[in-house]
Simulated assay, not measured.
Amino acid sequence: MKKTVLALVLASIAAGASAHKPWIMPTNTFIEAKEVTVTIDGAISDQLFEFDTNTMKFDGAMVTDPDGAVTAIPAPTSSRFRSSVDLKLPKDGTYKVSLVSSNTMGSYKLGGEMKRFRNEADLPAGATDVTRSTNHTRIETFVTANKASMGAFKPSGEGLEMIPLTNPTELRTGETARMRFTLDGKPLANQPFSLIAGGVRYRGVLGEIRLVTDAKGEAAIKLPSANQYWLGTSYPNDQRKGPPENGAKRYSYTATLAVLPE
Rank of each mutant, 00 (worst) to 15 (best):
L188M: 12
R116G: 03
A220L: 05
T134I: 02
R250E: 15
A220M: 08
S79K: 03
N135R: 08
V5E: 15
N119W: 08
V38E: 09
A215C: 01
I73E: 08
E113G: 01
I44W: 13
G106H: 03
T141I: 10
F49P: 00
T166P: 03
G126L: 07
G112A: 00
L206Y: 02
F181G: 02
P124C: 04
D214N: 12
T131P: 00
R180N: 05
V130D: 11
A69N: 11
L195Q: 08
T29C: 07
A248W: 11
G217S: 02
K3G: 09
S98H: 07
I139D: 09
N246V: 00
T104M: 07
V100H: 13
A255I: 02
Q47D: 10
T169V: 14
Q191P: 03
Y202D: 11
V9Q: 14
A127L: 02
Y229G: 01
V5F: 09
T131G: 03
G112H: 06
P90Q: 10
D184L: 09
A255W: 06
D92Y: 13
Q228A: 12
F58C: 05
G204D: 11
K96M: 15
L89P: 08
G68T: 03
T173N: 08
G106N: 01
F51K: 10
P124Q: 08
M1T: 11
H20R: 01
N54V: 11
G174R: 00
R250H: 15
G198P: 00
T176I: 15
N167A: 11
Q47I: 08
L183C: 06
T4C: 05
V259K: 13
A127I: 01
T254S: 14
G42T: 09
L223P: 03
S98V: 08
P76H: 04
L257V: 05
Y95K: 14
K154E: 14
F193R: 02
S234P: 00
K88Q: 14
K96S: 14
R172K: 15
T27I: 00
A197T: 07
S84M: 14
L171H: 09
N54L: 14
K109N: 07
K115T: 01
E262G: 04
D129E: 13
A15Q: 12
T256R: 07
Q47W: 14
A145S: 11
G159R: 01
L10N: 13
E161V: 06
V36L: 12
